[in-house]
Design a protein around this nucleic acid. Structure first.
Length: 566
RNA sequence: UGGGGCGUGGCCAAGUGGUUAAGGCGCCGGUUUUUGGUAUCGGUAUUCGGAGGUUCGAAUCCUCCCGCCCCAGCCA
């Protein structure tokens, strides 16, 4: 965690922190212990980041600790791959669980003993109704349920049956262990919830030792209690599980009494934030894996070059409340730009090259031009960029017949080549089809560095790259994965995928210093945006991902002109 | 007449009975600028889902109403 982060988190205020402050003040808690409890059945996304920042952040602020606990109670969906990826992501986000890496499966023996305890106290029973029958007996939202015919099975019989469930004598689905609570409760979670089910499946960590597995409800709160969690923070959909959470804590010989608090999960415009839908994008091949730079996953952001600090800043700015909300991606984008603007080294790169020949520049000369690495950070220093007679500029920086407000190059116009010279366009060379393929220009030797001694002004500054010295690169440009802010709001979310959300630019020309850049560093190509080298890069085949475009004032002016004309 | 939540500007979100309802994002306009970036200045809710009521005073308390979200997995 950086200093700017901790100073930002001062004065963070939300209802969760209010609760903790009150608990501390009233002596209900002496140590704040939280946990981030992912199920290893997929990759972490920005919604998880909100929870991670909350749980680890709160623990740090109050001098407590935060555990990383894998909620691995469903072997049919969980994989080692996810366990490893999740740890990498949490670490990359900047958080440290120290020795507190836990697994719900670490508690399987204890949980089993807890179940036995409930049976012995006549508070749980083995039911051999089918799943369908259990559903029928459960009633509906408005009609109370009815008791299972097995509800009054004698304790000894329950003990025998439960033991045999554990021993693997029964088929999947043939029996379950249920809590004996209240089939008429308005809260469906209290209508004798299932505590254990038979799953003859191999578990990523416990292998084949178990054929019964606890449900979320039976495992989560008890694991909290075992780990000494003081504040168990989860999302709103678990709100009506809280009475069950509390009931189990009260009725079991657990070592501590944790409490559950719920906050609203994150929704983001132009994104889907559900492991199920993200999984579908991956398995159907709509994206290039969980870490596709268009994915709202932590690994996707990392590959896209978004810094962890920006994600933490975002998590802090959106706040923590109980009201359902959808945050506009623009806020996320702002956090990314805000951070990168301060730290990203500036470089020159041409995405869509147009050749320029400086006619009055010596053919054999190459000059080393001083360029500032980061105008926002003096300590970043300067570098040398080679300038020569033949250069590339951006196609979009030249117009044969420019509109009034176009400040870039055009026939007869003079502009500044950043850090180098004032350049005047003398002629545009065209191919037989009428496309401009080359510009013939002249330079003013007296403007070296980019200023005219006599105070002559120029309206535009454009970037350039020396043709002879440039390195070639392929650049992947990205836009929102979805065409609408609320994918899936009308029909299948896959119909809202923007097929043009990824475009590949090849033959891009970058300044030679970029030969030394590395995967994991995000830099700014001036006037374009932020970019980062992709992990697929090879020595002869450099690939960059666009992290985020700079805000584009020119695009706004153009859009306005267009709407005025209409 | 099932249970549980939530409603403050376009989007987040402070506010916990007492001067003109914080702040951020976005948007609009100005200034600066060797990135049409950044920075900076100004504008953007006479009103807090609605209606009543209590009070000298209400976004904050009470009543009723309206809207939205979650729950009927042997998923988490």
């Amino acid at each position: 965690m950086t200093d700017s982060d901790s100073s930002q988190s001062e004065g963070v205020k939300d209802f969760v922190r209010d609760v903790i402050r009150d608990d501390l003040a009233a002596g209900r808690t002496t140590e704040v212990v939280t946990r981030f409890p992912p199920e290893p059945n997929g990759y972490l996304h920005i919604g998880h980041a909100k929870s991670i920042c909350l749980n680890f952040g709160v623990a740090a602020e109050f001098g407590g600790r935060c555990h990383l606990r894998f909620d691995d109670t469903n072997p049919t969906k969980e994989k080692i791959e996810y366990i490893e990826a999740i740890q990498e992501d949490v670490r990359w986000l900047g958080y440290d669980w120290r020795e507190h890496l836990h697994f719900t499966s670490d508690n399987f023996d204890t949980l089993y003993q807890y179940a036995v305890h409930l049976i012995e106290n006549n508070k749980a029973y083995v039911d051999d109704l089918s799943a369908d029958e259990i559903r029928e007996y459960r009633g509906t939202l408005t009609k109370p349920g009815t008791n299972s015919p097995n509800r009054n099975r004698p304790v000894t019989e329950n003990m025998d049956l439960f033991g045999r469930m554990k021993a693997g004598e029964f088929a999947d689905g043939s029996h379950v262990l249920r809590a004996k609570i209240d089939m008429a409760s308005g809260n469906i979670n209290m209508r004798d919830p299932v505590l254990y089910r038979i799953l003859n499946a191999s578990h990523p960590r416990t292998g084949d030792t178990w054929s019964i597995y606890p449900t979320y409800d039976f495992a989560h709160g008890q694991s909290d209690a075992i780990e000494g969690i003081s504040h168990s923070i989860c999302t709103l959909e678990f709100e009506d599980h809280r009475p069950l959470y509390d009931w189990l804590i009260e009725n079991l010989p657990v070592p501590s009494t944790p409490h559950q608090y719920e906050f609203a999960r994150l929704n983001l415009t132009y994104s889907v934030l559900s492991k199920r839908l993200l999984m579908q994008l991956v398995t159907d091949g709509h994206v290039d894996g969980w870490d596709d730079p268009r994915m709202p996953t932590i690994s996707g952001y990392r590959r896209r070059g978004i810094p962890a600090a920006a994600i933490r800043d975002f998590a802090q700015r959106i706040g923590v409340t109980k009201s359902d909300s959808t945050v506009e991606v623009e806020l996320f984008d702002h956090c990314v730009r805000d951070h990168l603007n301060k730290v990203a080294p500036r470089r020159l790169g041409v995405l869509k090259p147009l050749k320029v020949v400086i006619e009055n520049y010596p053919e054999t000369l190459t000059e080393e031009i001083d360029a500032i690495n980061n105008p926002e950070d003096e300590t970043a220093g300067k570098r040398k960029v080679p300038f020569s007679r033949e250069l590339y500029i951006e196609r979009d920086d030249f117009m044969e017949d420019p509109p009034k407000k176009f400040f870039r190059l055009a026939p007869g116009r003079e502009v500044r080549f950043r850090y180098a010279y004032f350049i005047t366009c003398r002629e545009a060379i065209k191919d037989s089809a009428g496309n401009v393929i080359e510009l013939r220009c002249t330079y003013d030797p007296a403007t070296r560095g980019g200023n005219s001694a006599e105070g002559r002004k120029v309206k535009g500054t454009i970037h350039w790259v020396s043709a002879e010295h440039a390195i070639d690169a392929e650049i992947h440009m990205y836009s929102h994965l979805f065409t609408r802010p609320d994918p899936g709001a009308e029909g299948d979310f896959r119909d809202d995928i923007d097929m043009a959300s990824k475009t590949i630019l090849s033959g891009c020309k970058l300044e030679p210093s970029l030969a030394e850049s590395q995967v994991g560093e995000t830099l700014q190509l001036e006037r374009h945006g932020y970019f980062t080298m992709d992990r697929v890069s090879q020595p002869g085949h450099i690939v960059y991902n666009q992290t985020m475009a700079l805000r584009d004032g020119w695009a706004k002016i153009q859009a306005k002109e267009k709407s005025v004309k209409k």
